[in-house]
Amino acid sequence: MTLAADALRTTTHPAAHALASEGLNTHAGALPARRPGPTNSEPKAVRIAIITVALLFLGLFIALPLISVFYEAFKRGWLAYVAALVEPDALAAIRLTLLVAGISVVANVTFGLVAAWAIAKFEFPGKSLLITLIDLPFSVSPVVAGLVYVLLFGSQGLFAAYLQAWDIKIIFALPGIVLATLFVTFPFVARELIPLMQEQGTAEEEAAASLGASGLSIFFRVTLPNVKWALLYGVLLCNARAMGEFGAVSVVSGHIRGLTNTMPLHIEILYNEYQFVASFAVASLLALLALVTLIAKTLLEARLVEDAQ
């Protein structure tokens, strides 16, 4: 089910869209005589063919799998579906997933805000390096990210001796899962905020300071409200990814049923055990999450235009 999250990840930045379209608008406003004419001058048959291909593609690769998830989940009826979800191991997986996602979202909101604030509002040495580092999780395979944590905190790892001495378990336990998820979801909030905050500049903060506002007051009364929709958007993407993450978590989790299995891992185990209904029932929850995310995302994109104005 990482498919949905991946699809979300590759969408272009909505604020950029908003700005681009705004730029066009003002341009058209300045030159009322030269409105951009219709560009779809292709013959009708060609247009229909192109649209058909696009719709077929969408149906085949997105809609059909999504429908089949729900079809498989409800194959044995409502009772079997509910039974698969209230089963203790499934409940534990759901709880763990929610916990990990919750921690990741809070951590990434904090980090993302701080990093975006620093990058957008101040000049300091090493700024471009920081921006590159924030993007790193996008270019590293999640499995590699998980492996890095095993190498660092595993029983043969770099810090193994210290961790054993203090009796701290990271790998095959909650901290490892959280770390791996954090690594993967690290860029979402920051990436959303940086361009917007850079675009907005520091003038409003300066104005607030000249009116006597303290640093904290400026942050909560001016900076944060100005990026609230972008922040929510980042949280949405971050949450979807945190719940759907498979690769990185799989490496560090240890797949202990009822303890370190998140929903995606639980689905895999059930599937490998030929418990298709149970497997698809849990999967349907993630699919539902993806749908809710998509709807919320669409609603938010309209609001993002407000931020960028």
Binding site: A203, A207, A208, A209, S210, G212, V222, N226
Partner: peptide
């Protein structure tokens, strides 16, 4: 913030 100076910014910087 302690100078109590009114500043009107070039592009107004309204909230």
């Amino acid at each position: 913030r302690e100078r109590n100076v009114g500043f009107v910014f070039q592009h107004y910087a309204l909230f």
